[in-house]
Write a protein that binds this DNA or RNA. Structure first.
Lengths: 249, 249
DNA sequence: TAACAATATTTGTCAAGCAAATCTATGAAT
DNA sequence: ATTCATAGATTTGCTTGACAAATATTGTTA
């Protein structure tokens, strides 16, 4: 007979959870130093390897960092938005590769979020973002750019657009979907998209943003997305054909 | 003189990263069994505790799970959207408590995302979601409900609204901001919001959704958010006063 | 045949210690 | 006296070896 998975959680996990709570509820603050591993082992009445397993769990979530040496030890680390963004992006990438998330849904979400961004950006964009975007557009016109460089510039352009919302939560959310779509988007750009058309759309967005013309801006975003989706389904079609060809062969 | 933090990453971290990549790129699939810890230790030429530290890092990200016994071992676990959502929510909650994210920004993001949701939901809502929402509205009218129960019902109402988009990525994103705002929102409801007004707004949203009337739906959402923000700033004001009073005392 | 017990396998934990990093303080050379 | 090098001291990183607990399998007995 099969046993049900045991309910008792490992000591290491419990300790990790306890420390995590201490961080969450403010008992442990950023840059606070935890006791040494030996000290923790004594306090919790467990061995040092067990403590280490607990700490590694927290380190995996970048809640703590450790340094060796006399002034070293384990310190609480305030997770930055960047850290979390990176984590989230890699998780989403994994789920896309496992087909948990559908690319079509990601594309739709991106479109809708970008519409939101443009609404906010039209109101709040500063010269800083406008000039960042202008720089990228200029760069994109350079015919000697490789496809990789062009894609990277495309990402930077959209990042500047998101930054123009001046809302860090919005940025956080948006980066996730932008990055999750990036592999496919690169493929699309490599195979099907003409640079001229992309640049033209970027310029439309930029002009609308500079003029703070919401209507034109939304139209530009929609147009861009219609085009991206068309290329995107072309790419999927192409990939479908290639896959079925491989199956036959 | 201070040393720069050492560049060499720990062996355990490298191994964890290697296994993570194997999962990401499909070399290891869901429910695949990894070699035993001893076997891995032999393969990587490290000790078992080191392997365990690596595995615990992955377990912390719920990429693997372990069972004891002869048929036990370490198995690759396909992370579900639920897992990830939970992870993300707890991370965001932490960052809110550390003031990395501003509540005003979260509120704005939620408003904008909810506008997006309503746009999609108006087109795609099914009877299932409509009836879930109706159930909650009915429940909310029960005067004997505790504040906690009322809040929980409020969350379920909005969850149904998000589900009506039938876009799992959108749901994923939305749950994050809903949950991140929840503690404050509860406080607001407890102290400042009148239930009748909240219910009235829910009903407006529901009717617009049933009629698939986009204009009315957007208006209802906007109205709700104006009200929420007003209560929200009242609550912040109240908290500010309480804090400064404490400082004086 | 069915219930039960022994056994093997695998993760969980412990113990003690060495290695590597790195800060601090001491001492030597200028 | 000041600066530089060097020798501890301290803390994490890692190893070895072993035992404990969980649990599937296999054999034994009623």
């Amino acid at each position: 007979m099969k046993y049900e998975p045991v309910v008792t959680e490992s000591v290491a996990k419990q300790i990790a959870e306890q420390i995590r709570r201490a961080i969450t509820n403010g008992t442990l603050k950023a840059d606070d130093k935890l006791p040494t591993e030996s000290e923790l082992a004594r306090q919790y009445n467990v061995s040092r390897p067990t403590i280490r397993e607990a700490l590694k769990r927290l380190a995996a979530k970048s809640l703590i960092r450790s340094r060796r040496g006399p002034a070293g030890g384990t310190f609480v680390r305030a997770p930055s938005a960047e850290d979390m963004s990176q984590d989230l992006i890699s998780s989403v990438a994994l789920m896309v590769s496992l087909s948990v998330f559908d690319l079509t849904e990601i594309a739709e979400t991106r479109h809708e979020l970008e519409r939101v961004c443009i609404r906010l950006a039209v109101k709040r964009r500063t010269e800083a973002e406008l000039s960042r975007m202008a720089t990228e557009i200029k760069l994109q016109k350079d015919k000697s750019l490789t496809d990789e460089e062009f894609c990277a510039s495309d990402v930077r352009f959209h990042r500047a657009l998101v930054d123009a919302t001046h809302n860090s939560v919005m940025q956080f959310q948006m980066f996730t979907v932008i990055e999750a779509l990036q592999p496919v988007e690169n493929m699309v750009i490599f195979r099907f998209r003409e640079r001229e058309k992309t640049i033209e759309q970027h310029e439309k967005i930029w002009r609308a943003l500079r003029a703070q013309d919401l209507e034109k801006a939304e139209k530009a975003i929609d147009e861009q997305m219609v085009y991206l989706r068309k290329s995107f389904s072309q790419a999927q079609e192409w990939r479908r054909k290639r896959d079925s060809a491989e199956t036959v062969a």
